[in-house]
Nucleic acid binder design. Structure first.
Lengths: 340, 340
DNA sequence: CTCCTAGGTCGAAGCGCTTCGACTTCTCTC
DNA sequence: GAGAGAAGTCGAAGCGCTTCGACCTAGGAG
């Protein structure tokens, strides 16, 4: 591989000049710049990332800690990952992918060995053990999620509490008096994953505020799980006329179960889904849904990271307001379908 | 951050000794080793990755080029990514994630700037434009997929042709004479993605060999897509008694469609799915399926990479034999269900 | 006409690590 | 009891880049 010295020799300048052409940190005459750029192109020169990291004290690499277990929310996670990588590339950065099961150790490793300039951490638990270590690290960090005590770390997330509230409010305003919540798998709650509990809190708030009856249960992301969950809700809440589904993978099975038990959506039961838009649109019924804007959140996280990298201080936490899209899965209680 | 010089000073040795303790490339007395290790622990020393890369000529990072579009096969891709990262970690390597829409440029960039030691490339097209550039690169590369001309590059994949054959053979042996194939989305074929065409080829082979009637069509990964695809198959092949589904996302909708149109699985129509095991088990019916062993393939790819990195030559291509698991979605033609 | 400043370029000093060669002890072997 | 070889350690030379200070040349201000 060509080195900066080769380029310098070919262009008849010093290596520092080549470096300044590349970084733009000092003025260079148009003539010199042209010669250097020609040599770079001719030699196919690419700066050695390691040398750069050593001398320049940054790597242009971001770490992304993602929950790579085969949980429910695979499509959402995929969206996050995709948008983080894409956004990072638009800032000329690459992404090093960490699994969450390395936990804090992975973060300490990549930060400690200066492999990355900053960290983005997903799947935050309410009392996440990684937060203290993140704070101890020198690198900027952004959480996709919201812990109880961010403690000076930037957070970016959907406002899941508001999402829970919004879903119920929508149903209440359509006259429903008894709503069930089909939640994420038990494991998600057990881990204390913050979006699950925040959503539930918003759900409960709205239920109380509107004076509704409710039942809520976690659901495994399988047909059987959805069935079991629905059965429990039916048991506890006999007159249930509306369902909020905060579990992508349960959506399709659920719809199947409802239909085969003769309950029409939305005539007999209204359903609000919490999921990415494309999931909401790919089902047999176009689902009224609260969007999980994975792409937007990933991009936002990267933007926060970049501004921290630029030296801007302050650990703002941004919770995106939920937006509910009315489609075909909700109707007024006791009546027929209603236009979205 | 502590440097190797700090550690050396604390332990009262030279930096080279610390380096040899770390790398094990020269004998070190137990006493010295102990002192050095104590200093390392005390100072929380971590070698600087950039410095290491510069001096040591390798980064311990792998590039993984994954199709991060929101295609159908999200769960499979997730499995690949997960297993590659996990396997890489077990060899003390990290993974830099590239999106496929950077194409060859991304590969050239990370390889050219010495960010990675080797590359793993997914979602290979029959005549993939990245293959020539991969060959030109110095770094070892492994494909997850199988192009027409691997040209000296190692490949790892499920034997999709055999998978197609196996699925049909299974059905034929149960007396089915007319089988339909619900394939991946049109876009997958249009890209010339190799697994789709290989699977189809195997399917057709078996159809001919067993003298069956058949119809095959791509399907969008939505409810509507599955419905349209099924309709076309029904039109072309009125007596169809068995379906092969090479499209994870169409599976759940399909089952719903069949049920609501009164066709029982497996009594009226047998279905063989091509998908990861957990998908096959999460549906309303435990699906007879040909497994896509994402975890195994990812791990295999990493192993190949590591052996190339160790200097072992030879570009073997490994196609894993498909294994069909009999479950509850297939029955003998014209009879009732049959034990798996 | 001199002085200052800005533009443009260079040389050299690191950045933190690995590795090569050399050196010093020991421990065998004959 | 001398020589060979292994074990254990050190010093120094890079690896390829960035950046600091210095230098030179013009052009404008006074």
């Amino acid at each position: 591989m060509a080195t900066i010295a080769d380029v310098a020799a070919a262009a008849g300048v010093s290596t520092s000049t080549v470096s300044y052409v590349l970084s733009g940190r000092r003025p260079i005459s148009p003539a010199t710049r042209a010669r250097v750029e020609a040599s770079i192109a001719e030699l196919g020169y690419r700066p050695h990332a390691g040398a750069r990291a050593l001398a320049g004290r940054h790597t242009n690499v971001l770490a992304l800690a993602a929950p790579l277990r085969s949980d429910i929310n695979v499509p959402v996670i995929m969206q996050f990952v995709t948008s983080v990588v894409t956004a990072a590339r638009s800032y000329d950065h690459d992404v090093l992918l960490l699994t969450n099961d390395e936990g804090s150790a992975g973060l300490e490793r990549v930060a400690g060995s200066a492999m990355v300039d900053a960290l983005i951490v997903m799947d935050i638990e309410s009392d996440d053990a990684r937060i203290p270590v993140l704070r101890r690290l020198r690198q900027p960090a952004v959480l996709i999620g919201l812990p109880n005590r961010p403690g000076g770390i930037s957070c970016v997330d959907l406002d899941f509490a508001a999402a829970g509230y919004t879903a119920v409010a929508h149903l209440a305003e359509h006259g429903h008096r008894a709503v069930g919540l089909i939640g994420p798998p038990p494991a998600v709650y057990e881990r204390g994953t913050s979006y699950a509990t925040r959503f539930l809190a918003g759900f409960v708030d709205a239920v109380e505020e509107y004076g509704l009856a409710s039942a809520s249960h976690p659901s495994e992301p399988t047909f059987e799980g959805a069935l079991a969950c629905l059965n429990r809700i039916d048991d506890e809440l006999p007159g249930v006329s509306a369902l909020v589904v905060h579990n992508e993978a349960a959506l399709s099975p659920l719809l199947g179960i409802l239909r085969s038990s003769g309950r029409r959506v939305p005539e007999d039961v209204s359903v609000v889904a919490i999921c990415p838009e494309d999931v909401a649109l790919g089902l047999p019924i176009r689902m009224t849904s609260v969007d999980i804007p994975g792409h937007q959140l990933g991009a936002l996280a990267v933007e926060r990271v970049m501004s921290l990298l630029r030296g801007e201080r302050g650990a703002e936490t941004r919770l995106l307001a939920p937006s509910l899209a009315e489609r075909d899965s909700c109707a007024d209680a006791g009546t027929g379908p209603r236009a979205g």
